[in-house]
Amino acid sequence: MQRTNDTILKYMIKVDNITKSYGSIQAVAGISFTIQAGETFGLLGPNGAGKSTTIQMLSGLLRPDSGTIEINGTTDTTRVDVRQNIGTTPQAIALYEDLTGWENLSFFGKLYGLSGKTLKSRCEWALEFSGLSERRKDRVSIYSGGMKRRLNLACSLLHEPQVLLMDEPTAGVDPQSRNLIFENIQQIKLSGRIILYTTHYMEEAQRLCDRVAIMDHGKLLALDTVKGLVQTYGGKSILEAVFDREPQHLNGVHGKLEGTQFRAETQQPLETLARINALGVNLISLHIKQANLEDVFLNLTGRRLRD
């Protein structure tokens, strides 16, 4: 039993109060979190929040000014053997444009120590993953933006790393390709790997991530499951209804009634709806706007995620 616990605990990321400044700009201002094996962790924040800087520190590209990062029990993430277990998808597309898709994959595969049949089958898998099997012999320079994005992601998955750091892997990808990518990531998720996913699309965080950290100005403002965040910071849902006639009294239903128009702000919109039902009026129209991560962000910062 102890053994299994060990292996589960083995691939764990523990970030403790890390900071990073570029000159006078403090990109990361003391953030802490842990990610357990099998967990998909989202970093949600606007431009310049410090997401990429965080990823770069985790991938060993940058050393934190202070604080510690522990991956797989090692605190020095710049170590070569630690990097073998990490797959990082950089935010900027980083591919060799003069090489073909296949050549790019096989090049990075080799650097991760793959060779022979394994290399070949992993490259095949990656082409399949990115939907580029047919374009394998084309130079990357003539790929579309979305294709490059997909290959950019695939290159970091070749060596089946235990830890995946994905920095906005879907920017500029059309909804269809995005769906393909999501399905694939969900597959990877099932295999028990750690995924750290940064994005400024709240739908992505909501759909993929087990837990989400809201980041702004280099700080984590909140960290919880999506449900927990919405409940704590999303504010109330808004319920708007039009009745067929004016009810005599609201019978304890909290809300504002103007003629037949009803509006309520509530944490439990469904309960409110059940109470309205008991008023004995019919509904002509009903609109419930549930709180989401966007509202969480708005409530936390007073700004929208993307403005």
């Binding site: 590209l61 070569v80 990097r83 980083a94 444009e97 650097l111």
Partner: peptide, 14 residues
């Protein structure tokens, strides 16, 4: 500049 150097540095080589 294109970021491939960063990518190389993320691979397990010195």
């Amino acid at each position: 500049r294109k970021g491939t150097y960063h990518r190389l540095r993320m691979t397990p080589i010195h």
